[in-house]
């Protein structure tokens, strides 16, 4: 693997300084957070690597807060911290569950949620959970701050609503309610860490045994994470039963358009979406009907 002996790395001491530098070198710098995606990408690329803006030192972007029923996570927060966080375990267990599956312990300690979001792999494991949690992203530049709903952030395969002077600084979402349950699933090709062949998250709001609201997001089956809206519709207003969950699982096929790659064929991915939705809903059914 090639050595990046020829690039320079700028290490700002504060967010302000980082935004300043990003503005000054518009389009010339790549942002380095944990580096677990970026370093390999740069070392494998045919083209010359850009200079880097190393934000890894910016501890001000590492936090998890519970604010007025809103959970706020600083973009640099790593997944080990997220999965172990009592706030996340309590108010967004579906994210804690997803976070725990991101690579190995060594990856968890370094991989940031911001990096997972901006790297925009369709198989990124935090994204389905963030989709069903209705997450909002905070983007900051030297000139201002804006907020984007996560579903609006992705415009296509690795196409983002992110300007060259902008940093992702925070991810926020409403805390899960008492009557909501969420589950994450991931199909990898080995028991140890593996990139997802398909993954997904389901969030159900249940009232008196009936599904009041359902949100389902699927990864690795389209250029971006997608909501399985037909599946959601099939569930809403229903009691969970074998029949209902089977129908809901099958309904996801209208939402996905997977491709063949080294980890699996499109046909297999389709079946896995259906079957994982079924298996996950089956487990949720047992929890609800207990």
């Amino acid at each position: 693997m090639k050595s990046l002996s020829y690039i320079d790395v700028f290490t700002p001491r504060s967010l302000e300084e980082a935004l300043e530098l990003l503005d000054k070198h518009r389009g010339e710098l790549a942002v380095l957070a944990g580096g677990t995606d970026l370093i390999i990408q740069l070392r494998k690329a045919q083209q010359k690597a850009p200079n880097l803006l190393n934000i890894y030192m910016l501890d001000e972007l590492r936090y998890i807060k519970h604010d007025n029923e809103i959970i706020k996570i600083g973009a640099l927060t790593d997944f080990a911290t997220i999965t172990e966080s009592p706030i996340i375990q309590r108010h967004a267990p579906v994210l804690a569950e997803a976070a725990a599956t991101i690579g190995s312990v060594q990856i968890l300690n370094k991989a940031s949620i911001g990096g997972n979001i901006v790297n925009a792999s369709p198989a990124a494991d935090s994204l389905p959970a963030l989709y069903v949690l209705n997450a909002t992203l905070t983007l900051r530049s030297k000139t201002g701050t804006r907020k984007v709903a996560i579903e609006q952030f992705y415009k296509g395969y690795k196409k983002l609503d992110l300007q060259s002077g902008e940093l992702l600084t925070e991810v926020s979402f409403p805390a899960m309610k008492q009557n909501q349950i969420g589950m994450f699933f991931k199909h990898g090709l080995r028991q140890g860490d593996a990139i997802s062949v398909v993954n997904g998250a389901i969030l159900l709001e249940v009232l008196n045994g009936y599904v009041k609201d359902a949100r389902i997001a699927l990864g690795a089956v389209a250029p971006t994470v997608v909501r399985a809206t037909e599946s959601e519709k099939t569930l809403i207003g229903q009691r969970l039963s074998e029949d209902v969950i089977l129908k809901a699982a099958q309904a996801c096929l209208t939402s996905i358009s997977p491709i063949d790659d080294v980890r699996g064929s499109a046909a297999y991915r389709k079946e896995m979406c259906v079957n994982y939705l079924y298996m996950t809903l089956w487990q949720m059914m047992r929890m609800v009907n207990l």
Binding site: V9, L32, L52, Q106, I107, N109, K110
Partner: peptide, 23 residues
């Protein structure tokens, strides 16, 4: 994982850590 080191006491991959992140 062959390159595992502790960075401020936490296990990380030294192959995925730039020296600039270690300063």
């Amino acid at each position: 994982g062959a390159c595992t080191v502790l960075l401020d006491g936490r296990a990380v991959h030294s192959c995925l850590t730039l020296i600039s992140q270690v300063e």
